[in-house]
Amino acid sequence: MTGAGFFRAAGVLAAKDLSIEWRTREGLSAMVLFSLIVLVVFSFAFDLATIKQLGPARLVPGILWTTLAFAGVVGFTRSFQVEARRDSMTALLLAPVDRGALFAGKSLSNLVQLLLLEVVVVPLSAIFFGYDLFAILWPMSVVVFLHTFGLAEMGTLLGAVAAKVGRGEALLSTLLFPVTMPLFISAVKCTNAVLDGKELSSVSNWLLIAVGFDLLFLFVGLLTFEYVVEE
């Protein structure tokens, strides 16, 4: 299979998933509502005095990434439920494309959906926990994108595993959270630095972990996805 064919197949699959999502808006609305609820639960988990005392730089990174990881699980599970409904996964597998392209396409659509979710959730966290998002928009975007990338690809790969054995969110969470732990630590550290007004270069080793994770598991996902989905 040629390189161009690979990217085209991945693009077509991602476009298909996203257009289904655009027409139903089921997944994204579920993820947004779920995130909103988690954010509200967190604001109750810490009382007002604690929130004021800790300040957003200490509090928001953990809350934000826990929310995104939970909401991500909802999205990843759905991404394969859509295929299971009319057994369209079988049709996808029959298509004469590289299985890696299926992984790339699914990951891409999951990434886009997570990023759309973040466009809502990150400003919401700024409103709820009181920090100036506009002042740190650029470094915040870099940090959010780099960590969402790894979350999306790992969520896609493990989401396929969970779907394959007919288990949903519970199994996916048990598999996904330990694996993405380095990404999670890095995300919290980087977001913390950004909220503290520090330069991104001060957390360059963490960004390196995130990029390393993203690239390594992109490679692993492309290579192993066929073993997960094969009949």
């Binding site: 790969l157 595993v161 054995v165 598991f217 192993t224 073993y227 997960v228």
Partner: peptide
């Protein structure tokens, strides 16, 4: 599946 998870 366990092999894929083992590698990961």
């Amino acid at each position: 599946l366990a092999s894929v998870l083992g590698i990961i």
